[in-house]
Nucleic acid binder design. Structure first.
Lengths: 147, 147
DNA sequence: ACACTAGTTAAAGCTGACTTTAACTCATAG
DNA sequence: CTATGAGTTAAAGTCAGCTTTAACTAGTGT
């Protein structure tokens, strides 16, 4: 009789999985309570997570990183659970998220410009390239940057 | 006897100034309590702000936009009030802020890539370019994108 | 056997950044 | 003269997103 070998996927308990994903144990339980992730349970009742769960969490964190709130993620997850019928809704949601994100992104770039200008201005003062009396507004104007 | 005309700068009361800066009245008072902005007072005791205050607020909001917390802004403002002796400290603070910001910015770009890919993937499903069975992980791999 | 570490739950607490409320005054139009 | 609207203060409340606590159980190393 041949022995059947089952390729068993790696099981991560919450501590190991927390380290793997960069989240804390409590945060993982919190996400579970919110329905964002559904870990499995081994015979002894302890949670375990798989590599597939890790990919899922990473994807969620990317969505979160673009500005989606936990509530929006919950909505997304709920639609996902409903199956293909909700694909257009999910697509629409993600497109809305992207619109908001692009808007925020432009503001970030502008803020970055101002921050860089200010750093250059301070650096100029420190290095003596900019006169003691030249104000930042003047300096910005000289760069054709606003605000 | 010639009459001396003083060019008086425009005075904004809190409501008008709130509209001008996009902040709320309460937020302006909150910022004042935190020492981030010092409005002036007219004879009747009401706050007023000037265009210079507006520039200052806009600059603060840009710094805030790059990830500085209110606490960091308070530190910055405190150093500024101490005069030129703290210029290197301020420069250092802003450089630290920039380091953190650039880090976050890269993560944002990565998240953006993932979001775009996901949207394209859904779009492909909706348009029928992507087979019902092709998973997102596969799709990402086909683009040489990770996670 | 006993300590130590990791896990379990529900619930309360925390942080940052405001927002809202309460109770008031002051300036101006009708 | 009184109603309206904007301003004033201090203090309490809100919200998202965790984090901490309390009180417990279960598995592992010496």
């Amino acid at each position: 009789m041949a022995t059947k070998t089952v390729a068993t996927e790696k099981r991560y308990r919450i501590g190991e999985f927390a380290a793997k994903t960069g989240l804390s144990g409590p945060t993982l339980r919190y996400y579970e309570k919110e329905g964002l992730v559904k870990p499995h349970r081994s015979d002894n009742g302890l949670r375990y997570y798989t590599d597939a769960d890790a990919s899922w969490i990473k994807f969620l964190l990317h969505l979160k990183g673009t500005g989606m709130t936990i509530e929006q993620l919950k909505q997304y997850v709920a639609w996902r659970a409903e199956g293909d019928a909700t694909i257009t809704k999910r697509l629409q949601l993600l497109k809305n998220v992207r619109r908001g994100f692009l808007q925020k992104f432009e503001e970030l770039q502008h803020s970055m410009t101002i921050l860089n200008d200010k750093i250059d201005w301070y650096q100029g003062k420190v290095d003596g390239h900019i006169s003691d009396s030249e104000g930042f507004a003047n300096y910005l104007a000289s760069l054709n940057h606003e605000e």
